[in-house]
């Protein structure tokens, strides 16, 4: 075309356009002028396409369980260390099973009351220019830690029984007496200590969607955890652990929840425009996160054949209603199949 030549002096390379006006840049990708091209996002994915996940387990040798999860350019290392908490160090801990004990109350969660699961997220590792190393934890890091913490407890993922260390006191009463009143004299087993799991999540590279990656890291690392066989030694009055790997045991996780985050991209930057075109972008990267305000995270588990939801967290806009939520959940179901395959390996 003849008119193309003068225009070229005013046009920019793609990168400059993306930097100068990011919103029209993404919009131009999602709304191509020619019918022949498929609308994609600026990163080449279509709106409902996730990034390929990679999971590597057990790469940290000094941790009880670890995982490296890579989703696109977001990479997370999650390491789990287990420590022993003695029951007699717990203030006000009571072993009795009377009705006044706090442990008999409805909804009592031992792991939560005793803080047996301690997740922490570190973003200040130089993972992204937005988070400088050596700075105090950013709002995002604190917010993510809280979300991981509450999801760990509300999903009941870790069985409290796995974290208890029992001790069966020997029966010291003599044998003849035993036969007469057999059941009454058998001493009850007691909980001598608890395992505390320190779940540290380090972002070594962050390109959007930190929660999904962090949660996948937590799940994968928890599946990888091997707790050594621990027992109470009554002579030394301390907990001892067996060295052999054969006697160690894995955690029994209840289900396999997966988090899926989506953002809503609106055609107009003006928020108050009444009707506007919008796209739901799954698994967003940093560039898209800067342009979207509304985000939805659903946590689902399809393990038992039926889709179970473990959490919804949505804020920042009014686009997502009941219908849109259905669409997001069905996308999440597809993602669950993909990720659970990797996690089960």
């Amino acid at each position: 075309m003849a008119s193309a030549a003068p225009q070229s002096t005013l046009s920019f390379p793609r990168e400059t356009f993306a930097k100068l006006s990011p919103h029209p840049y993404l919009l131009a990708h999602l709304q191509p002028t020619s019918d022949s091209s498929i609308p994609t996002r600026a990163n080449g994915r279509v709106a409902t396409q996730f990034r390929t996940p990679h999971i590597n387990n057990g790469s940290l040798t000094h941790a009880e369980g670890s995982a490296v999860v890579r989703i696109g350019d977001t990479t997370v290392v999650c390491g789990i260390r287990a420590e022993i908490l003695l029951a007699n160090n717990v203030a006000g801990y009571r072993v009795d099973k009377s009705s006044t004990a706090p442990s008999s109350k409805v909804g009592y969660n031992e792991a939560k009351e005793l803080d047996l699961l301690v997740p922490n997220i570190e973003l200040a590792t130089g993972c992204s220019p937005a988070f400088m190393p050596g700075q105090p934890p950013s709002t995002l890091a604190q917010s993510l830690s809280t979300r991981i913490y509450s999801l760990l407890h509300s999903s009941g993922l870790v069985d409290g029984e796995d974290l208890r260390i029992w001790y069966q006191p020997p029966d010291l009463s003599d044998q003849d007496k035993m036969e007469e009143e057999d059941e009454e004299d058998v001493p009850e087993p007691e909980v001598k200590a608890f395992w505390t799991l320190y779940i540290d999540i380090l972002f070594i590279s962050l390109d959007g969607n930190p929660f999904d990656a962090a949660w996948a890291g937590v799940i994968s690392a928890l599946k990888n955890v091997r707790l050594p066989k621990a027992y109470w030694d009554p002579d030394r009055e301390m907990i001892l652990c067996e060295d052999s790997v054969a006697q160690s045991k894995k955690l029994q996780l209840r289900g396999l929840p997966i988090a899926v985050t989506s953002l809503v991209f609106k055609a107009k930057e003006q928020k108050q425009a009444k009707v506007q075109k919008c796209w739901i972008l799954v698994d967003p990267d940093t560039f898209e996160e800067g342009l979207c305000e509304e985000s939805v995270t659903v946590v689902i588990d399809c393990g038992s054949g039926k889709t179970k939801m473990l959490g919804i967290s949505k804020a920042g806009g009014t686009t997502i209603g009941m219908l849109e939520m259905k669409g997001i959940v069905s996308l999440a179901e597809k993602r669950w199949v993909e990720l659970s395959d990797l996690l089960d390996r």
Binding site: K308, T318, I320, G321
Partner: peptide
Amino acid sequence: ELLVAESEGIFTLEDWDEVY
């Protein structure tokens, strides 16, 4: 219009629709 939705615990999509 739905502005904020935060849910915890175990439920199904039908449960959520009813809650909505």
